[in-house]
Design a protein around this nucleic acid. Structure first.
Length: 776
DNA sequence: GAATACTGTCATCGA
DNA sequence: TATCGATGACAGTAT
């Protein structure tokens, strides 16, 4: 179950993200034919399985369309089954690139190719089971999906040449837009979706009219669907044809979102000037550059100060996803991670050894977040700072083979998620500034260990979380939150045997010769050692619950054996596994039992022997010693009452000794059960504590990465300012100072001094020694 | 038949 | 000192 749950959860997450990216309308017809009209109505009803809008509505429980709660799971399950396979196939290089291409085509003002594709797209859709292809963009996407990756590149080059030439950035922007739209879904969207779902329903009715043809829906059903697709345009978000002016609205929203993105994303403008960053960074120790260039750099750096807020939220979202994702180790990712562009200025000072455990641990589940990985790259300046070279920008994303694609989509962006790209940069890039690296100490081995531990915590913490959740379901604070599903077989069989057990006679005669027949009767009842209803009730009346605690404790493991709690679970009252402590047959004599005449003699003997076997040793002893009261009284009575009870009877020394032993053992038995319950609770609490600590640690590490990123930005800013100031300095003759001979030094009062390089180096060495001495 | 889990029991300690 | 609860250890039983 754990694996299944994990699989579904993971798949649904991937599926969710994928839907968010491509706006796929889920094809439920394949799975819900006319044999399941109610389910079909529920799932294909006004609210389900259409677009990302509905999906997030479901997730956000907007309930705008009155879905039955259970339909959500069914919906997710059936859709996930099919779409999960597509998500899984991401590493076979189809979907991720097509997602990107679809949006690019949509944004292409010319859109010549995309506009010519709808018919083929529909045909492909019917064959692939994807219904969502409504717009020309999706048509291209579908066709590309079918045709493979090589043609994707061609389409990219021919159809959707990026305006800025940075395809990666556009992809990132678009993906971020989708995310924002998902988050900010308003009523207008829902209304739109609703109206167009009604039309969809009409089409479905038409399909249902031709009920037999539904199974073979690629025929007429596909045509109807095609009509529907041409009419409603699916997916709501990206669909212009349905609503007049819808395309304009969409375009407007895109632009708005782009503006929003540029305003919030600290690297948005950075990506526009990757070369500038590189040149400036490299130029710090060397000769200065024209100051005008730096102005272009400073502004994005300044805007970068706003980044932690947005990034924080996005990190939280992503990490919440990551916590639910069972991340697997993908060692191949390191290759991609360390193949960062050599000119990447951000990777200059924060490179890692390629064999650090970080990148071995950081990876997504195969290509599970292939589409989502683009979102991750949104926060990755590395991606945005890739050399802008048109289609060449896609090269890191373009797989030469399936393996590389898997690693690319599975890990690269995830690395950007967990660690800023500079962490994954190569160590070969030594073109950085010569200023003392303030971050060098922060990225030592300890830091790497922590980050790797974070991965381990997330990885290892997942199962304990699930386990604890199951445990919590299994064992609540009361210790008796039992579910019948946990032991269905145990519940059914004893109940089935209750009738025969209740018909047992009142005869207390037990014979050893009846053992064979008794055992056979047990096998017939299918529940050897389980007490019947009447037995339990009678025994509880006669002796109290002490003798029957093991029964339900078997279900709740180490639960407290409190009979009062047992009353809350009537179905458990009658079911259980009893080793000992059954009532004495004499107690059954007074119980309400059917007249002996209604019971066969053989069954009487069987029952007697059965009950005799169910008696505990102490009960046997008490019976043998003719103790005049029940073991329950012996055990549970308070000391005073117990002594009074003993004083009422004339008991021999052996009887008194036995009674005291019974009392001691009975109390000790309950104490042992309580002790074990406490022990289990302690373990569970510790488990939860560990999970909490793991979450806290992961969160803190996220924050740390964020801080490092901010620090890096500040450092770049300082470097730029340094160069700008240094470049403007002139000596008495009006000549610029040589960076190799002079350096700027920041004084403690905020002033900046121009000192010889040698002196500056000496001071830098002194400052380096001080921390070392302090450590000693 | 071995491994494991559950349960009862004993011995012991401390309150 | 007797009683009781808690707990480790062991053994029996069931799965």
């Amino acid at each position: 179950m754990l694996s299944l749950k994990k699989y579904l959860t993971e798949g649904l997450l991937q599926f969710t993200i994928l839907l968010s990216l491509i706006g796929v309308r889920v094809d439920v017809d394949t799975y819900l034919t006319s044999q399941l009209p109610p389910l079909r109505e529920i799932i294909l009803g006004p609210s389900s399985a259409y677009t990302q809008t509905q999906f997030h509505n479901l997730r956000n429980t907007l309930d705008g369309y009155g879905i039955h709660p259970k339909s959500i799971d069914l919906d997710n399950y059936f859709t996930a089954r099919r779409l999960l396979s597509q998500v899984r196939a991401l590493d076979r290089f189809q979907v991720p690139t097509t997602e990107v291409n679809a949006w690019l085509v949509h944004r292409d003002p010319e859109g010549s190719v995309s506009g010519s594709q709808p018919s083929s797209a529909l045909a492909l859709e019917s064959s692939s089971g994807l219904q969502d292809v409504t717009g020309p963009d999706n048509g291209v996407r579908e066709s590309e999906t079918e045709q493979g990756f090589s043609e994707d590149l061609e389409d990219l080059g021919a159809v959707a040449p990026p305006v800025s030439g940075d395809l990666t950035k556009e992809d990132i922007d678009l993906i971020d837009i989708l995310w924002r739209q998902d988050i900010d879904l308003g009523a207008g969207r829902e209304i739109f979706d609703y109206s167009h779902r009604q039309k969809e329903q009409d089409v479905d009715k038409e399909l249902q009219d031709g009920a037999e043809q539904e199974d073979t829906w690629p025929g007429e059903g596909a045509e109807a669907l095609a009509r529907n697709l041409l009419v409603d345009g699916e997916t709501g978000e990206s669909f212009p044809a349905q609503v007049p002016g819808g395309e304009d609205q969409r375009a407007l929203s895109l632009e708005e979102c782009l503006r929003l993105l540029e305003a919030t994303c600290p690297f948005g403008e950075n990506a526009e000037f990757p070369a500038d960053i590189s040149s400036i960074t490299e130029a710090v120790p060397s000769e200065s550059e024209p100051p005008g260039l730096q102005n272009n750099l400073l502004s994005p750096l300044l805007t970068g100060t706003e980044s932690p807020f947005d990034l924080e939220q996005q990190w939280q979202d992503l990490m919440s996803i990551m916590e639910m994702q069972a991340m697997e180790v993908n060692t191949s990712t390191s290759e991609i991670l360390y193949n960062a562009p050599p000119g990447d200025p951000l990777s200059t000072n924060y490179s890692l050894a390629p064999n650090t455990p970080i990148n071995q641990n950081v990876s997504l589940h195969q290509a599970s977040l292939g589409g989502c990985s683009q979102d991750f790259s949104l926060f990755s300046p590395e991606v945005e700072s890739l050399p802008v070279a048109g289609s060449s920008t896609l090269l890191p994303l373009a797989p030469s083979n399936s393996t590389s694609l898997n690693s690319t989509f599975g890990s690269t962006n995830l690395a950007g998620l967990f660690f800023p790209p500079q962490l994954n940069g190569t160590a070969n890039d030594t073109a950085g500034p010569e200023l003392p690296d303030p971050l060098g100490g922060l990225l030592d081995e300890a830091m790497l260990d922590e980050i790797s531990l974070m991965d381990l915590a997330i990885e290892e913490g997942f199962n304990p979380v699930q386990a604890s959740q199951l445990e919590e379901e299994f064992d609540s604070d009361s210790g008796l939150s039992l579910d019948s599903s946990h032991s269905p077989s145990s519940l059914s069989s004893p109940e089935g045997s209750s009738s025969s057990s209740s018909s047992s006679s009142s005869s207390s005669s037990s014979s050893s010769s009846a053992s064979s027949s008794a055992s056979s009767s047990f096998s017939e009842e299918g529940a050897v050692g389980y007490s019947s209803d009447s037995e339990t009730l009678d025994l509880e009346e006669a002796e109290g619950a002490v003798g029957y605690q093991p029964e339900y404790s078997k279900f709740c493991r180490m639960s407290y054996q409190d009979p009062s709690q047992l009353s809350c679970l009537p179905y458990l009252e009658h079911v259980g596994h009893n080793h000992t402590y059954n009532m004495a047959p004499s107690a059954l004599d007074s119980a309400d039992l059917p007249p002996p005449s209604t019971v066969k003699k053989g069954s009487k003997e069987k029952q007697a022997d059965f009950l005799d076997k169910q008696m505990s040793r102490d009960e046997h002893r008490a019976r043998a010693m003719k103790i005049p009261f029940t073991n329950d009284k012996i055990i549970n009575l308070p000391v005073e009452e117990f002594n009074e009870l003993l004083s009422k009877y004339q008991l021999s020394e052996a009887q008194l000794s036995l009674i005291r032993d019974i009392r001691r053992r009975g109390k000790n038995k309950m104490a042992a059960q309580n002790c074990r319950k406490r022990k289990l609770d302690t373990i569970l609490n510790l488990e939860r504590d560990v999970e909490d600590l793991q979450r806290d640690k992961a969160r803190l590490l996220q924050e740390k990465v964020e801080f490092l990123r901010s620090l890096r930005q500040m450092k770049q800013k300082v470097q730029s300012l340094y160069q700008e100031v240094f470049g403007r300095l002139r000596d008495e003759n009006g000549r610029p100072y040589s960076p190799s001979q002079y350096a700027l030094q920041y004084a403690g009062d905020g002033s900046v001094l121009l000192i010889p390089r040698t002196l500056a180096d000496q001071q830098a060495r002194r400052q380096e020694r001080k921390p070392k001495d302090r450590r000693k």
